[in-house]
Amino acid sequence: MSPSNLPPPPPLAPRTRRGALALPGIRNIGMAQPLDWLARGARDMRRGGWLSLLHGLVPAAFGGLLVLLARDRFWLLAGAFSGFLVVAPVLATSLYAISRAIERGEPVNLRLIVNTWTRWQFSRYAARGGYWSMVRFGLLLALAGTGWVLTSAALITLLAPEPVNSPLDFLRHIVLAPGHYVFELWLTMGGLMAAPIFASSVIAMPLLLDRRVDVLQAVLTSWQAVLTNPLPLVLWAALIMVLTLLGLGTLLLGLVVVLPLLGHASWHAYRDLVDASALPERLPPEGAA
């Protein structure tokens, strides 16, 4: 089909008469629902097989390389690994696609992964509400992650009572240092930066993948989900943090399982929290599926 004969794009989500963005409905969920997301995520990970585990193996290998290259600059490692949590929702995009395919009874294969990461390039209508929305959101998260890496590095370098060059130095001079509050300050600043990022991204990437919305709609919907269900999503944030720390604490080997588990579970979080039935689907471009 030639470009001139392509059908018009499906409409974006409607706006109200005052010009405000019309957001999808948000469902109320139970306090224990995040545990169900993990259970369903584990089921999808088993069905995704090696393709799911690959999403954990590659970041774990990259983390190992980072440790090898920056083993004497722990201030950089601390910021880099915590910054990784910021951009993780973007890296999990193809895990959302796997879960969606399983949900729809569609085949899960390498072509699905490749198309998820490349087909936005061929979207004629990518300028508004298209695949570039996902790219723009990813860039915003990457900027936020870079900002935290620089902030973390500056805090540890400038305020630590002794040079921090290893995990043991971090434990001794930052976490357990008597009379100093660098660790508390580091945690507080990290929390202040992480909370709005979590609220902006908890369901934004799955929504951008699944429906033709723009970045602002996705972010506002994500905030609305958090404000509607604050306690369950606080639990969800805590589970993400604990499982990620377990993955890091097992010499990064646990990340091979933890990252795909959280990615698949995040898809089910989106499906339970958001009623997106009134929004147009984001269909693959002609010939790209």
Rank of each mutant, 00 (worst) to 15 (best):
W148E: 02
P230H: 09
D275C: 05
L255S: 10
L279I: 08
P10T: 11
L69N: 06
W132T: 13
M134L: 14
V242A: 12
L253T: 09
D214F: 08
P161A: 02
A160L: 02
P14S: 11
M45Q: 14
L243D: 02
R212M: 11
E106W: 06
A154P: 00
V256E: 02
L77A: 07
G254R: 13
W50N: 13
W236I: 02
A97I: 03
N229L: 06
V257Q: 00
S166Y: 06
A237K: 00
L65T: 12
N115Q: 12
L261G: 02
N115I: 04
V86C: 03
V226N: 02
G25L: 14
F198D: 04
L283V: 10
A92W: 11
S222C: 07
S94F: 01
S99W: 01
P161H: 02
Y270C: 03
G145T: 06
I29H: 03
L248G: 10
V87C: 03
G48R: 08
W267M: 01
S200T: 10
W148M: 05
I174T: 10
L235K: 06
G19K: 12
L23Y: 05
A218Y: 06
T93H: 04
R104W: 09
D44E: 12
T250L: 10
H268S: 08
A80Q: 03
L76E: 02
A20R: 10
P167H: 06
V258F: 13
L65D: 09
R43N: 07
I203Y: 04
T244R: 00
L248Y: 08
W223A: 05
L21C: 04
H180Y: 13
M193N: 11
L143T: 11
M189W: 11
F137G: 02
E281P: 06
L21D: 12
L66N: 10
T244M: 09
P206M: 10
G63H: 13
T157L: 06
L38E: 07
M45T: 15
S222R: 00
L54V: 14
V182S: 09
L248D: 05
R271K: 14
L110C: 01
H268I: 10
L77T: 01
I26P: 03
A13K: 05
R15N: 09
L187E: 11
P3R: 04
L192M: 14
A70H: 12
M134F: 04
A195C: 07
P206V: 06
L231C: 06
R17T: 15
L77M: 15
R71E: 10
V87N: 00
L69G: 04
W75H: 13
A195Q: 07
L12W: 08
L6G: 08
W50Y: 13
V256Y: 01
Y96E: 02
A32K: 06
